[in-house]
Design a protein around this nucleic acid. Structure first.
Lengths: 126, 126
DNA sequence: CGGCATCCGGCAAGATACTG
DNA sequence: CAGTATCTTGCCGGATGCCG
């Protein structure tokens, strides 16, 4: 068990989940792998997420060193988000999730939901 | 955009997130990669999750075809959960998350939180 | 032991409106 | 356009109790 920065992890995955486990974080990071984006662009890419949630999750990703936020001091403000080096190191993860999701969708449209609701066996072996 | 089984996906990652994006799901699946487990064993592995949440998330994972649930009809009941073939196909993902988490923890204990709270530049280029 | 139903409190997240 | 603050709600998830 590890205690780091006020966080306690039993197994390492928990650290990863802590960083990208947020409701929208993985999705945001995924969109940023297509290149730097302005707040509004991100917003349009993810219609389901509210403006508030978007900035909130971006803040946390920034605090965890995943994204870099650049502010241009102009009169309609312009803010650009991009992945940091650490953020880019998640790329293989996102690629895998993307591929897996595609296969899963194909599986679904072919066979429907699996629902392997499994069988009960007899009362043997404690 | 894909519409499958009452779910709408803009990009494939969303499908993956739908399956393992639940608050505890990734963690549960991760523990199951160490082998089949009884409900109680899982519970002990993850002290933070309540009994209710555990069974609830397990139900959903079962419905999505990730885990297989086997019930032994005996007098103290015994229920064993294990990964399905589909579940095992997530193994590389979990491995990656585990490795990444480990590196992240090391990074943290070395440098503390990154907080790349980035700088503002001047008012150029719209 | 494992699962489910019920109740309920607290927090997550939506809506809105206001600054710069 | 980007972000914050305030208020509000809904549902997530905890606690408890019962059943097989």
């Amino acid at each position: 068990m590890k205690d780091i920065a006020n966080r306690t992890y039993n197994i390492p995955v928990e650290a990863t989940l802590d960083v990208i486990g947020g409701k929208w974080k993985t999705l945001i990071v995924c969109h940023l792998t297509y290149g730097p984006k302005r707040t509004n662009e991100l917003s349009k890419s993810m219609p389901a997420i509210t403006h508030k949630m978007l900035t909130q999750q971006l803040r946390e990703l920034e605090e965890d060193g995943i994204v870099i936020r650049t502010v241009y001091n102009q009169v309609p403000p312009k803010v650009v988000y991009e992945l940091s080096e650490l953020g880019w190191s998640l790329k293989p993860l996102l690629n895998f999730m993307c591929d897996w999701g595609e296969k899963y969708i194909q599986e679904l449209s072919r066979n429907g939901l699996p629902s392997q609701t499994t069988t009960a066996s007899r009362g043997e072996e404690l």
